[in-house]
Write a protein that binds this DNA or RNA. Structure first.
Length: 431
RNA sequence: GGCCCCGUAGUUCAGUUGGUUAGAACGCUUGCCUGUCACGCAAGAGGUCGACGGUUCGAGCCCGUUCGGGGUCGCCA
């Protein structure tokens, strides 16, 4: 007999069907038992009549297979129920659950416990909702970029040297040579632009060996990267992201309404995202709150204040912060035409958190070499990268979106770890 | 890594000025109940109060050390 997902049972009223799933809840009325059976699509009420007829031990989270009659029943929560005729226990919990996944709108357990029992905690619908949304974010990212002529690529995660010199790298032993986990696909996606692909994107892991231990940092995260050639300027890159986000949010509204409401989240609107030079943002929060910013940057409180300022004055939960100083950006950042101490770069803040970094890159070979030297780095260390710039590299730029950060902000989560299935942080390497 | 806060039942937490037998809710076990839907009712089990040391007649409570967790800052995206 073919298994029917619980969300399709209404199409099978009056038929005998096979359903499989987990016991979500048991209501023992003596002569009759009501089970709420949960599968990947939802839940259904299963009715067991006749007490000892089903000689099956039942506990929450038991994996079950049930054959029964689908009945239209006004007394059932969803209007239909399954009258069990045969029950087969597929797998019985070996231990009592460390927390209940069928109680209430939120899972009552600390983050540490949740991650220690990740496979179980993800059975809670609220936690599961986060990752359905995340999957749709990635889907929308892919679909949109493919339609815009981007090619999906996969670049190495084991590399010989770092990208930007700054961030800490995880060393790995690569046979007889030292190597590192890639902190970014930056070099490779630029090279592929120059390789004639023009427009590339990647959904891949990035690794940062920073010792940070905060609610917005992971040591392994998923980077939604894109890079595009033949741009007229950094505005083209911001325009692509603006359009991408508008379509992404629209996609979520259409496909994840249930998950969004289960999380109590509100999807943002995406209009024309304001673009504000860094110095202007710094001045605004200084004037409004007396907030001093670090030189050439915003600190976490500054990001929150700038977001609040833009939301109040421009009605946008998103804001591009532009024109970061050369000293605060990597060597490949394109200096601004108007002011060579600034760059054609941007960060995107969403609800008070940086979710994207992007910019135009230096495409001229000699200029790039000079920039590397100015940063105190050795061009010899970047030979394979520089080679791509020798033979007609077009003007280009791109960006990287932190998937977990975007997910976190869209879902209204307090900690970025909650937006990672199996987070890797300063203290956690398992599961 | 700095600073601040917190470690009490399986879980989330309360616990008064240091005082006798450490509580609640949910979960768990057993029994009753044929329309529940957070089912209900009755009974019950469950604690080295993170660990070690100290102060005290007496420590869950005060002090020190240590381990673990959370927040925040730094760094970073």
């Amino acid at each position: 007999m073919k298994r029917i997902p619980t969300n399709q049972l209404s199409n099978h009223a009056g038929e005998q069907v096979l359903v499989k799933g987990w016991v979500n809840r048991i209501r023992d009325m003596g002569g009759v038992h009501f089970l709420v059976l949960r599968d990947r699509t939802g839940t259904v009420q299963v009715v067991l009549e006749g007490g000892g007829l089903f000689n099956v031990a039942l506990k929450p989270e038991t994996a079950l297979s049930v054959v029964g009659q689908v009945a239209v029943e006004p007394r059932a929560p969803s209007g239909i129920e399954l009258r069990a005729e045969k029950i087969e226990m597929l797998s019985f919990p070996a231990e009592d659950l460390p927390f209940a996944v069928n109680q209430g709108a939120t899972l009552r357990a600390g983050l540490d416990l949740i991650f220690n029992h990740r496979a179980l905690s993800l059975r809670h619908p609220r936690l599961a909702a986060v990752f359905r949304i995340q999957a749709e974010i990635v889907h929308a990212f892919r679909t949109f970029l493919r339609e815009q002529g981007f090619t999906e690529v996969h670049t190495p995660k084991i590399v010989a040297a770092g990208t930007e010199g700054g961030a800490e790298l995880f060393p790995v032993r690569y046979f007889e040579r030292p190597a590192y986990l890639a902190q970014s696909p930056q070099f490779y996606k630029q090279m592929l632009v120059g390789a004639g692909m023009e427009r590339v994107f990647e959904v891949g892991h990035a690794y940062r060996a920073e010792t940070h231990d905060t609610s917005r940092h992971l040591n392994e995260y998923v980077s939604l990267d894109l890079e595009m050639g033949f741009i007229d300027g950094v505005e083209d890159v911001m325009a692509v992201e603006n359009k991408l986000l508008a379509i992404l949010v629209e996609h979520l509204a259409k496909n994840c309404a249930r998950e969004v409401s289960r999380l109590g989240a509100t999807l943002p609107t995406v209009g024309q995202i304001p673009r504000v030079p860094l110095f202007e943002a710094q001045a605004a929060i200084k004037e409004r709150h007396g907030k001093e910013s670090p030189r050439g940057n915003l600190d976490p409180e500054g990001e929150r204040l700038v977001s609040r300022w833009i939301e109040e004055t421009r009605g946008s939960e998103w804001v591009f912060i532009t024109h970061y100083p050369v000293t605060e950006r990597p060597f490949y950042a394109m200096p601004a035409l108007s002011e060579p101490e600034l760059t054609e770069s941007f960060d995107l803040l969403f609800r008070g958190l940086e979710v994207t970094t992007g910019g135009q890159r230096i495409h001229d070979y000699r200029r790039l070499v000079a920039s590397i030297c100015r940063f105190g780095l050795d061009p010899g260390d970047f030979e394979f990268y520089l080679d791509a710039f020798k033979y007609g590299m077009p003007p280009h730029g791109g960006l990287a979106i932190g998937l977990e950060r975007l997910t976190m902000q869209l879902c209204g989560l307090d900690n970025v770890r909650e937006a990672s299935l199996f987070p890797r942080d300063r203290n956690r390497l398992t599961p």
